[in-house]
Simulated assay, not measured.
Amino acid sequence: MTRKEKAALVLDRLRVAIPAPETELQYRTEFELLIAVILSAQCTDERVNLVTPALFEAYPDARAMAEAEADEIFPFIRSVTYPNNKATALAKTARMLRDDFGGEVPRAHADLVKLAGVGRKTANVVVSVAFGDAAIAVDTHVFRVANRIGIVRDKKTPDGVEKALHRVIPRDEWAEAHHLFILHGRYTCLARAPKCEVCPLTDLCDYFASLQALPEPLKGLDPKQGRYYSKTAKRYFDTPATKVDRHGTEQIADPWSGSMNVFDARTGQTTKKVKDYRV
């Protein structure tokens, strides 16, 4: 199966699982969407939605917010991540919108990234959601899901993931794919504990296949003889070494033999980790 074929099948299944993919940020205008997306950086949409009603009541448009100083905006957003930096960015962005764009959110991607607190991802969200232009915004969820499933091949940066997705997903499906991947990552393909048992994509997922290939637990190990057990060397030890495997993942290793076929003597579980894409 090619990556284009895999991407098409993944999107078909996600459309069934997520019948109405759209942003979970609450907004009424293009200005409100822009501000909400800036606030959502490294923060949950749920938290952003809690603070924006009061913020938008106080500052309903760019011209109103442009009159505010960062320390006046701060109390409204103190519970989001990095509130000091974001308050400064909102004040600067509002003034730029007023002074350079007539108080309106610019449609051009090149203009959006000039605004304070707006990078490529934020600009992609705005042009896609607000203006209906083709774009895939790669946040932590999209990055993780695309790499784990194997729609993209071991891309290490958001830009790399975005370019790879452009090659395998039709342009007119970019916006929908962006929301499907985000929602799948937010509720099923979680960063720390993915819910593989309820995922509709396990037979297509490279990450799941790697998990299934991990060694079975060993029974009868004696933790009194050592914290770890090397199956290859048939020895216990307490202080492990580390090695990087062929996939670039750091693994616990037997310091004597160098073997990475190591088990936790208390649980019998392998210490091997599969390559992951949490950022």
Rank of each mutant, 00 (worst) to 15 (best):
A70P: 02
H109M: 13
L90S: 10
K272S: 06
R47M: 12
A54C: 02
L25P: 08
E30F: 00
N124D: 15
T242C: 02
A66E: 00
P158I: 15
L211I: 14
F56E: 02
R167M: 15
Y27P: 06
V125S: 04
V161P: 05
A7T: 01
A89Q: 09
D99K: 11
K4D: 00
H166S: 08
V145H: 06
F208E: 10
A89E: 04
A213K: 15
V118L: 07
L33Y: 02
G150Q: 06
F181D: 00
S40I: 03
T267E: 09
L34S: 04
A135Q: 08
K219Y: 01
E46W: 05
R13S: 01
F76V: 13
L39C: 13
G268R: 01
P21H: 12
K219D: 13
S210H: 04
T44C: 12
H178T: 12
N84H: 10
K224Y: 06
K234Y: 06
L50N: 09
G268N: 05
Y236S: 09
L39T: 13
D100P: 00
P223M: 14
R171Y: 00
A66D: 04
R98D: 03
I149D: 07
K114G: 07
A17C: 00
W174G: 12
F143S: 11
A241G: 13
R28E: 15
C205Q: 04
A193Q: 14
F237C: 09
F101A: 08
A265K: 06
A137T: 11
L55S: 07
E162R: 15
F101E: 09
R153D: 15
R107D: 09
P19R: 07
Y207T: 00
T188G: 00
F31G: 01
G117K: 04
T29E: 03
H166N: 13
E173H: 05
K273P: 00
Y228P: 10
I18R: 03
K121H: 10
A146V: 13
W174L: 12
I169Q: 07
L218F: 08
D206K: 09
P223F: 15
K4S: 14
T232Y: 05
A41K: 13
A70Q: 02
P60K: 07
T267R: 10
G102C: 01
L55Q: 09
K92A: 02
T2V: 07
R227T: 15
K86L: 11
G103S: 07
